[in-house]
């Protein structure tokens, strides 16, 4: 983010961004840190690399950082991260539920193992993290939870039924949690990115990439920073009266 506010928009806030070792999650973590938030990074594996990334972020922006490693699909691991967060920072103000896996398959070729993994990470993992995060936030009667879903979750896509289902579930999670937590001062919203330039989509065949890019009304592929801007808005008090919303970030893409 190029612009700044004084005092920083998120000064004194503590944030956790799951799946922040790269891609959209990394960009969101950077944006939150750049605007004054202490940020806990999370990655599936490679604690050394994540710790180095956290140290670099702390040095660059003068904020506190943590590195949390493990699988969001493992409730015991999630519980451990929140115990660490509580022990270190005693609070959580911003939670970005971003960790996910993208596996495409035609309906007839989706194996039970693949279905389990996608639902376990994208849906059940998000629920585990939201459950624990909300508990920390309600202590202080304030917080912003941001679920990163997908345009595939709002519009569907051929060959992506399982992934789309896993992300569509986050819409119900967002709407329900928003209603349940609003009386306690916790806002819950979702971002639905479209075609964003990340490792996940770069792995698609070039012909598929070209076809998708051509369907974007704004004429360009999105960047992780585009999504991070929306997350920053939702995380901050600029969105103090916004809850239960799903905000598209897709340049006018129609899946």
């Amino acid at each position: 983010m190029a612009w700044r506010s004084e005092p920083p928009l998120l000064a004194g806030r503590a944030a956790l961004v799951t799946g922040s070792s790269r891609g959209i999650g990394e960009a969101i973590a950077r944006a939150l840190a750049a605007h004054g938030a202490d940020v806990a990074l999370h990655g599936l594996h490679d604690p050394e690399a994540l710790t180095a990334q956290a140290a670099a972020l702390a040095a660059e922006f003068g904020v506190r950082t943590l590195a949390l490693v493990g699988d969001v699909a493992d409730p015991a691991a999630v519980k451990g991260w929140f115990q660490t967060l509580f022990a270190q920072w005693k609070r959580l103000d911003v939670l970005v539920n971003n960790a996910g896996v993208m596996e495409g398959a035609l309906l007839g070729m989706a194996t039970p193992a693949m279905i389990d993994r996608v639902i376990d990470v994208n849906t059940k993992g998000a629920i585990h993290v939201l459950q624990a995060g909300a508990r920390l936030m309600t202590r202080h009667h304030r917080g912003s939870i941001i679920n990163v879903t997908s345009i595939l979750g709002t519009q569907g896509g051929a060959g992506q039924a399982v992934y789309a289902a896993s992300k569509a579930a986050l819409l119900g999670l967002t709407w329900s949690a928003a209603k349940e937590l609003a009386p306690q001062g916790v806002r819950v919203n979702a971002i639905a990115p479209g075609y964003i330039d990340t490792d996940l989509v770069r792995a698609l065949p070039p012909a598929v990439q070209a076809e998708r890019a051509a369907a974007i009304a704004m004429g360009r592929v999105g960047t992780p920073a585009d999504v991070a801007g929306v997350a920053l808005f939702l995380a901050s008090d600029l969105a103090a009266y916004v809850t239960g919303q799903v905000i598209g970030c897709d340049g006018g893409l129609r899946a």
Binding site: K79, F82, Q83, F86, K90, Q131, R135, L136, T138, R139, P183, Q184
Partner: peptide, 21 residues
Amino acid sequence: SVAHMQLVATIEAEFDIMLDT
């Protein structure tokens, strides 16, 4: 049930602890 979750948050804050689900 709603007050129960508020009660949990109040107890956690009062004693600076984190309860399990």
